[in-house]
Design a protein around this nucleic acid. Structure first.
Lengths: 155, 155
DNA sequence: ATACTTGCAAATCGTTTGCAATACC
DNA sequence: GGTATTGCAAACGATTTGCAAGTAT
């Protein structure tokens, strides 16, 4: 399991998040900050396992976490915020199941395991999936992204 | 463009479909037969381009086609039928967009182009996508299927 | 002060379900 | 005849929207 170290000795713990939002052209409102903290700072203690940092959340889940953390946010705002973050490149939307959207805090090039039995999503580590060959994009189109989803079931 | 030839000189044009449904343990009802015809026999003149035979339909679309062909089927039945066909291995469900399901008449191993601008789905011919490396399935799980979706946007 | 954000409740979309009527074997 | 299948309309879950009230710069 890979560990990722981050220096979190900043005296003002929100400064980083505020700057990040501002850099994306989003006003650092109370709600956006709280959601950003839940998404990007989970654990919050400076040393975090990749499994914790790479989150795959649905709007409902994140809303639930906010409630649990006593952050008042409406579900509509959670939806709006997730989409704004996605547009800003802070999140990546992953579609594996019709009727539910997952948002991935890992925006690097990578692919996913999907556990059909539980509905859980998991990053495939590093570049252990590699395409040997990618076809030409059809006339007039260009490739925006390649999604690989490995669907799993319990053995 | 590959052409696929089929002998369609059968005097009873529905015999093949009826047998196919029976073989799947599905009663060949009027509705199922009509939908099977629309799905698997589009064109119906014996020589069909692959592009016509490999269909990607939503329930709404298929329902619309049925209406246009003066086949009385309720939308609920279209949904049920699509799922039954999928369970029987006659169709394959493809998820590219949260909130809309596509059903693919091509059940062979293959992958997809997805035109984000139009919402259209297209088979990637043959095996021009190939994975160089597939990771181990995590403990206790086995790989059921690998989906590759190449997302395209207009250039 | 002004433009951007939020929350609420209602609206929407695709899909599923309960159940009485109907069709297949 | 008995069971599987259908249609309808209502129910559903996730997501979006309109708009008045609140908040950041």
């Amino acid at each position: 399991m890979t560990l990722i170290l981050r220096s979190m000795t900043d005296a003002r713990p929100y400064t980083r998040l505020i700057d990040r939002l501002k850099a994306s052209g989003l006003r650092p409102t109370r709600q956006r900050l709280a959601l950003a903290k839940l998404l990007f700072d989970a654990g919050g203690d400076g040393v975090q396992a990749a499994a914790v940092r790479n989150r795959h959340v649905t709007a409902e889940q994140l809303h639930g976490e906010a409630m649990a953390a006593d952050v008042r946010v409406s579900l509509a705002t959670v939806y709006n915020t997730l989409h704004q973050f996605t547009e800003a490149g802070l999140l990546r939307e992953v579609v594996v199941e019709s009727g539910r959207s997952y948002f991935d805090t890992n925006v690097d090039d990578h692919h996913h395991f999907y556990f059909e039995d539980t509905g859980r999503l998991q990053d495939i580590p590093g570049d252990s999936v590699r395409l040997a060959e990618i076809p030409e994009a059809p006339q007039g189109a260009e490739i925006e992204r390649v999604d690989v989803i490995i669907r799993l079931r319990d053995r």
